[in-house]
Simulated scan of single mutants.
Amino acid sequence: MSDPISDFFDAWQIEEANERLNKIASAVAKDIQYDDPRTSDTIKGVDALSDYVGMFSANAPGWSANVVKSDTNGSVTRATVAFSGAGPDGQNKVQLGQYFVEKDGDLISRMVGFVGTGDPQTAV
């Protein structure tokens, strides 16, 4: 059985819109709520979330997003995600983000993301 959190972040590197939408739809509930430090409002629904993720792949071609660590406490999973790819100088860059995830059954129902991991040494 695949992990919906890893599946969701795998979609961040998919440039083709329908393929990305299908990958995201397989990982999240239809009424998904997603909060990100780069958005002012909660993103609601699979289509809106796929459009948002599509902006990442359009603005950072070749970059990937991978879960590098996760743990669960009660009904909430904390996932550390490494966003990586070539920077403007051609050198590989890595930026960490931390997400708190709630699920409804096997699908993500709510996700809240933060830049960095809260550790001053890894802040971006």
Rank of each mutant, 00 (worst) to 15 (best):
G54C: 14
T80F: 05
A17G: 00
K30A: 15
A58P: 10
Y34W: 15
Y34V: 10
N66W: 00
V46K: 05
S70N: 13
V101G: 00
W12G: 01
T42D: 10
G113M: 11
D7H: 06
D35M: 10
G45D: 11
F9N: 00
R38D: 02
G87D: 07
E19D: 12
R110Y: 06
A60P: 00
S50P: 04
M111Q: 03
N22S: 15
G87F: 02
K103D: 00
Q98I: 09
G62L: 06
R110Q: 10
A123I: 13
T77A: 01
L49A: 14
D51G: 10
F8Q: 04
Y99Q: 04
D106H: 11
K69H: 03
E16Y: 01
V46N: 05
G62Q: 07
V124Q: 14
T39S: 14
V53R: 01
I32Y: 04
E102I: 06
A82L: 03
N22A: 15
V94H: 02
D31Q: 12
Y34R: 08
K44M: 08
Y99L: 05
I5N: 01
V124E: 12
I5P: 01
P37L: 06
F83P: 08
A27C: 11
D36C: 09
K30Y: 12
V46F: 03
V28N: 00
D36E: 15
D35Y: 09
G45T: 09
W63V: 07
A58R: 15
T122C: 07
K23A: 15
T42Q: 11
V124C: 13
E19K: 13
R38C: 05
F114T: 11
I108T: 02
V81L: 11
M55E: 14
Q95T: 07
F83N: 08
R20K: 15
T72D: 00
K23F: 05
S75L: 08
D51E: 14
R110G: 02
F56D: 03
K103A: 02
T117D: 05
D10K: 10
I43N: 08
S6M: 04
A86F: 11
D7I: 07
F100N: 02
